[in-house]
Design a binder for these strands. Structure first.
Lengths: 152, 152
DNA sequence: TGTAATTTAATCGTGTACGATTTAAATTAA
DNA sequence: TTAATTTAAATCGTACACGATTAAATTACA
């Protein structure tokens, strides 16, 4: 490695991983005031979005969509249940799995949440097309990283 | 909001924030096996990169670069110190601030870490130009989000 | 059929991450 | 010079996030 690329190696700003990491935190922070009004955290909100899209999912199904382990989801879902937004219940068909269903309160929250995406898009300062392109690039990156993970 | 955009609203995959969130976790996972060999976590690694670039920084300075609070950094830096990679010491010039310095062991670790970025770039499956473009887009996004945060 | 292998959640331990508060030091104002 | 304000870390409480392990239910298959 020559001197120039050693400098690159040390420049945090040139790390793609760091840009992703920092952007993720920035999103978290910008969502916070909006989600506080709904009594949700950012990961909880994402779970709710998934349930609004498709109610009555297993923990496993939510985990697959969100790329999270049960060790993360179980406590999170219990908090949602404690707040009265979802109901957790063993599947009688297969007692291993737990089905997560929206309560009426959880369903009702959807109305209040619908204004959020527009606020966020506005805060990104991106036009729709750029946002879509960035979204696609990131999805591809994630897919690549997941398949690349096996080699390391 | 019409029916079509209501569907969009509910599709997790169309959320830019979710793509960033998921990509961040994917990076975390791909770094893990590489960083395990160095005995570092992912955020610890980013702090070390920052210190390799510029040794002898205050907690505040590291926090500004990484967009982290002292409540996150203090315990993290104490762990790095416990592992013998850095030394924390009050600045005699200004007793409010704590200076973080690399130990010899911390400096030496840099050699071992230098192979990592190439491994990661390889795992992303991106060519350098695409990676740079994505990096720029994300930095701009973060900057926008930070200035947009005040309005919400 | 019965045992082994797999699948699904849950639990535990460690490590971020943040907001609110606290403490101590330094700076500014009165 | 003292008093008020500001600044820098640290501390505390809550909430992710993951790996390793465990327990229970289901499936595979000998």
């Amino acid at each position: 490695m020559d001197d120039a690329s050693k400098e690159d190696f040390l420049d945090l700003e040139k790390f793609l991983c760091f840009s992703v990491y920092a952007a993720s935190h920035a999103f978290n922070r910008i969502y916070k005031p909006l989600l506080d009004r709904l009594g949700l955290t950012y990961p909880q909100y994402l779970v709710m979005v998934s349930l609004w899209q498709e109610d009555d999912q297993s923990v496993r199904s939510i985990g697959q969509k969100m790329f999270l382990e049960s060790s993360t989801l179980t406590p999170l879902l219990k908090r949602l249940e404690a707040n009265g937004l979802v109901v957790r219940k063993r599947d009688p068909e297969d007692e291993r799995s737990v089905r997560v269903r929206l309560s009426n309160e959880g369903k009702a929250l959807r109305e209040k949440a619908e204004e959020i995406p527009a606020c966020i898009l506005d805060a990104t300062g991106l036009d729709i097309e750029t946002a879509k392109r960035l979204n696609r690039d990131l999805q591809e990156l994630r897919t690549q990283l997941e398949s690349g993970a096996k080699k390391l």
